[in-house]
Amino acid sequence: MLTRRIIPCLDVKAGRVVKGISFLNHRDAGDPVQLAAFYNESGADELVFYDITASSDERNIMVEVVENVARQVFIPLTVGGGIRTVDDMYRMLRAGADKVSINTAAVLNPQLIEDGAKRFGSQCIVLSMDARRINEPGQPSQWNVFTHTGRDPRPTGLDAIEWAKRVVDLGAGELVINSMDADGTGAGYDNELLAAISAQVGVPVIASGGAGKPEHLLAALHEGQADAVLAASIFHFGTYTVEAVKEYLANQGIPMRRTPRPL
């Protein structure tokens, strides 16, 4: 049976892993290669490296980070952040990434999704979106897509569900749905948003934003109908280990990959 995936997300700045609380106040939490190896050993099914670097010099450091991780850790790696062109995608894939994740660049230039999918295959193209609820309480649920969510969130006017359908038509192979309302709260994923998108697309949906305890991951997989869950802080600061979360989910009847014991 196909198992559900637990995916730690590591924010990388100038070659070091940091984790923002609600995207801000970054704290240094370690070396990417060591953290990747640690997560691999603790049963992470995939890893996402998100480059929050601003400058192109530091972008070159990210290529080295990916190369170093790919030589040591043999599980799927996704790289996001700052990927604006097919050439940017190629650099990261050649460095050892299995997938690239695009967000703002895809909103600004949806053709990038199609071009990337044609060149590298849909399985390489992960579309990540930041969505925020815009309806008034008591009104039907509605979410809009935002860009530049770090310091200066900008509404795009795109409806999150319509955008999800469109990017899949263009060739996105997986969707990461990040709830801006839930992100950083530790109060759980936006399962209503996840379920609404899951019901509309035929590609895997990855939940992001809001995990505070294992029950939240379970709810994203059950109520949210997500295929995978992304989480950062709850793993980074050792609140829960990946292994403990997977054991909990397996006991709740979710198909999980068993963590291999070192040979």
Partner: peptide
């Protein structure tokens, strides 16, 4: 089905030398 199949799936194998350990 969601296509592509993406993720970890279990393999029932024939126990030949390829699967040693």
């Amino acid at each position: 089905l969601k296509v592509p199949q993406i993720g970890w799936n279990s393999v029932q194998h024939d126990g030949s030398a390829l699967w040693d350990g």
